[in-house]
Nucleic acid binder design. Structure first.
Lengths: 257, 257
DNA sequence: TGAATAGTGTCTTTAAGACAGTATATC
DNA sequence: GATATACTGTCTTAAAGACACTATTCA
């Protein structure tokens, strides 16, 4: 958790839960690249996962959605809780001190202010198409940007582990549930969804077996349209069968590769 | 979370994290029965999952282990985090009021005391052999007892959903990792471990295919001893290969039935 | 020798995985 | 017709699942 929220946290501290917050790993996919949205708060001067506090009036899922919205401007994103992180050293190692907050924001906080306590982070991840997103800094952030998961910058405390745990959870998740609705255009080609799976899984998948299994699930429907891709054969466009896709989100769809 | 902890919470409130606690679903197995350890706090007068607060000096896993120890007297139990629960209505529906606490404990707390806030519950589950356990009431509990998962009593707020979610997570977990070390004696028969799997999964498994797959994993070793079971053929005793078992906990062992 | 439980082998079906040749779009 | 990409079918191998008989213990 960081000062990522646009709320005037210092003035309305009572509006938030103490000792617990949300860290939301926002994954963005576009054109064979998987990225993570990171922010760099003034106070901490290191990159962090997007995070924030939980209002007393909202559920933890609403808090995660709220954080995702404040950084991406998008609503109704795919959100998934994966695990909680909590060790007493998180309080020390995250780098908050009254002095640094004073420097960065001008606020004077007592050393025993709850913001310096050990915080339990509820880890969520979010999926989006990153070309749709203009990363938006919070009031206390020096920067907010997409980073390739394969070349992460130096990260605060345990945030690298949080990202890696989120990626592992996502890879496990996509073996049992459909993904792609948030990551592809409404209509997409087989090579496009094939690349999506390869990129997130980080390995190549046999194209014939991939197409065979995907089509067997029935969650994609072939249209009669094609996409022009230059001096090559035009691939057919597919779309998701929304009924089967929603059902797959509930009951599961095996797509183990 | 409830008043389950033996600590004098009211006197040492500053020692604990606010707005976040642990709910630990303690599963007990014995002789083809799967049970859950529940407690009934004086204040709430309904059955609840075992739960407690997190000390500022301990990790969330340590807090869960600590809760399990205080109710079962056992250490080094298998502990698994599965998800967090957090909605503002948890505060209201869990049934804490200053009046009821006064009645039950004699302590007078202001209505705005943090204990009445919305709490995020970190859900864990624990596995143990219930014949080894003497359920131990906390200082604020009227009762603490094993309940069959198939006949749960009336439970506080969302605690039934928490138990069902824990069971679902356990069933998913056992398809990918070995279980049984905490639930069986050091040496056990094939029919015993077979019943264990059937009981937790809640359905019957073909005995021939079960034995075939289990032995193929190499995590069990057949001994030359047998168990006398009366007027029937004596089954052979098996034990876990501790090296392979530990390795299976890390890398996974497919035992999908 | 009858009753109850332990223990194991085979066959069928299905899924996974490896693999290569044809089709189409454009220049 | 050269090139780049789309698209699909078959064969092999492995795993899953259905199924039934023999072995042992003891009353």
């Amino acid at each position: 958790m960081n000062f990522s929220d646009d709320q005037t946290l210092f003035l309305h501290g009572d509006a938030y839960l103490r000792n617990v917050g949300v860290d939301n790993v926002i994954f963005g996919y576009h054109d064979k690249e998987l990225k993570v949205l990171l922010q760099r708060p003034f106070v901490l001067e290191k990159w962090t996962v997007t995070g924030g506090y939980i209002r007393k009036t909202e559920t933890i899922d609403e808090a995660a959605a709220h954080i995702a919205f404040s950084r991406t401007g998008l609503k109704n994103l795919f959100l998934q809780q994966f695990r909680a992180f909590g060790t007493p050293t998180r309080a020390v190692d995250k780098g908050f001190t009254p002095e640094r907050i004073k420097e960065a924001t001008g606020f004077e906080l007592p050393a025993n202010h709850w913001i310096f306590d050990y915080f339990v982070a509820l880890g969520f991840y979010t999926l989006t198409e990153f070309s749709k997103v203009t990363p938006t800094k919070g009031a206390y952030d020096a920067d907010c940007a997409w980073w390739p998961v394969s070349e992460l910058p130096s990260l605060l405390f345990d945030h690298r582990q949080i990202i890696l745990a989120a990626l592992e959870a996502l890879r496990l998740h996509m073996a049992h549930f459909p993904i792609g609705y948030e990551l592809l255009e409404e209509k997409f080609t087989l090579p496009e969804i094939h690349s999506l799976y390869e990129t997130i899984l980080g390995r190549s998948l046999d194209d014939r077996n991939f197409a065979k299994k995907l089509i067997a699930t029935g969650i994609v429907i072939k249209t009669k349209e094609t996409r022009r891709i230059g001096a090559h054969r035009s691939p057919f466009l597919y779309r998701f069968d929304t009924v089967k896709y929603q059902q797959g989100l509930k009951t599961g769809v095996e797509l183990v590769f």
